[in-house]
């Protein structure tokens, strides 16, 4: 058996067209040795979950700047659970008010990273929390 690679889906749900952050994080993840599947802009939660399952990723990293995080992030977690893929680590990043973070965590988002976080922080978080 070879050392298994951590596979991460970087997803951009909803309508905002800003994927600079998603691309920066995708690159940082690649440089950390992860295999990153990037699905592009304006994905529905259903598309993201289908891709996460087919790609058998360990982590779903959701980048969201539109303000719809309270709706879309929990929806992705719930859909994953419905499809029997509730074991995947779901993390979020973007412009997310501090007040919303406890609610997101209660909804199953393992961690939320806000602007200014060094890319090493989510990388270390993933390494520490992926079940391998």
């Amino acid at each position: 058996m070879v050392e298994s690679k951590i596979r991460v889906l970087v997803a951009k749900p909803g309508l905002d067209g800003h994927d600079r952050g998603a691309k920066v994080i995708a690159r940082a993840f690649r440089d950390a040795g992860f295999e990153v599947i990037y699905t592009g802009l304006r994905q529905t939660p259903e598309q993201i979950v289908a891709a996460a399952i087919q790609e058998d990723v360990d982590v779903v990293a959701i980048s969201l700047l539109s303000g719809a995080h309270n709706t879309l992030m929990p929806k992705i977690v719930n859909l994953l659970k419905e499809k029997g893929a509730g074991d995947k680590l779901v993390i979020g990043g973007g412009v997310i008010p501090d007040d919303d973070i406890p609610g997101l965590k209660a909804a199953g988002i393992a961690e939320v990273f806000t602007p200014g976080t060094p890319t090493s922080v989510p990388i270390e978080f993933i390494k520490a929390n992926v079940k391998k």
């Binding site: 690649r30 295999e35 990037y38 592009g40």
Partner: peptide, 27 residues
Amino acid sequence: TGGAILGDRIRMSDLALDEGVFIRSMG
């Protein structure tokens, strides 16, 4: 680093929900 960015799905996102299609990215 052994890492990879697998971006082919960007062009195929309409296919994600089609049960008759299975897409897998590999590094």
